[in-house]
Nucleic acid binder design. Structure first.
Lengths: 189, 189
DNA sequence: TCGCGAGTGTACCAATTGGTACACGGTGGA
DNA sequence: TCCACCGTGTACCAATTGGTACACTCGCGA
């Protein structure tokens, strides 16, 4: 039962992502991680070949978790753009996901620096999220060109306010700014 | 002439910030930095006491450079909010400052992780920039409460689009989204 | 029963790190 | 002139890092 190698690997990488979300990916060491998740650094090398490959898997899995959030967005069929925006906002700012969001920004920063395991995330960082937002805009009647602009703007605003929230912790202030945005975005038409 | 200790220190820290803006602060080593700016790692310790103190000065100086951008904003007396926004946007997205902006996000990421030399930036990350934006809003006739919300929103949007720009490099697409924002922000009243 | 291979631990290695000890040189003041 | 001191280089140290070698155990198939 479940003794397969892949299972063990998957279990390790999952624990590793949790650890990294909590303690950061920057100064991760195999020994520290191993001690935290109950395995020797020797085993991490054994299962993943090298630290770099382990990091690749960590980044990929962390990305996958973000994508799971996204899929919840995408799966709502007839959701209006404003509801999509609110939903996105509420999900991203769930305190339980704070660590995951911090990790997002940390990986982003390292990707900008060219850290090889992190760089690939830059490709999908914007486009992946744009797609469902554009779809919601178009469904709501915007023409495709402005739909793209509006979606891009909405995504950027959400992320900028998330950055604010993580820095200041001022949930009320940031929520108020978000409401102001929604008013501008949907209220004036 | 000019042989004062402080001068040498200041010169070193300035070169260090340039180096860090180009190569990142994450895996900085005294030897690597020293070799790049023409000084032995021994001297960096001599002038700064420890790597940590050097990093503190690097972060502080990098913050100061951001603040210089800010002061140019603040010094415009009767600038309308929309012009302030455009000015801010154009300055932040100047390709010559790309490295500096990357460093901003990198330091932010590390600050979220609790890296001691970076954490202090979180305090002023939002509030410092809010002040002149709020002032511009109030001067343009907004009541103080919504002025604060609008300023916070504008700052977040600018940063979110900057994140997009650094990730995708799609200047045209991001500029278009910015224009869409300005239309919403100022056009509908 | 035997043996083989996967999973694991211990010990080790080379490289890199921040930091220190000490020695040398030059410049300015007594 | 000579002495003190600042700036600098070289050599070194201890700690930590990723990665490897080898030995051991345990379960399963022949």
């Amino acid at each position: 039962m479940g003794g397969k190698v892949g299972d063990r690997r998957a279990q390790l990488v999952d624990a590793a992502v949790d650890y990294v979300a909590a303690y950061g990916i920057g100064d991760l060491s195999l020994r520290g991680l191993g001690a935290a998740i109950g395995v020797s650094h020797r085993m991490l090398i054994h299962y993943f070949g090298s630290k770099e490959q382990l990091l690749v898997e960590i980044v990929r899995t962390s990305e996958q978790r973000q994508r799971d959030l996204l899929s919840r967005l995408r799966r709502e069929p007839g959701v209006s753009p404003i509801d999509a925006a609110r939903l996105l906002w509420r999900q991203l700012t769930d305190p339980q996901l704070a660590n995951q969001e911090r990790l997002f920004f940390e990986i982003y920063g390292q990707a900008l620096r060219g850290r090889p395991e992190a760089v690939p995330v830059l490709d999908n960082l914007v486009t992946d999220w744009l797609e469902p937002l554009v779809a919601a805009e178009v469904a709501a009647g915007a023409d495709p060109a402005t739909a793209r602009n509006r979606a891009r703007l909405g995504l950027a605003t959400v992320r900028g306010l998330l950055l604010d929230l993580l820095a200041t912790g001022d949930r009320d202030g940031v929520d108020a700014a978000m409401e102001e945005f929604l008013r501008l975005y949907y209220g004036s038409e």
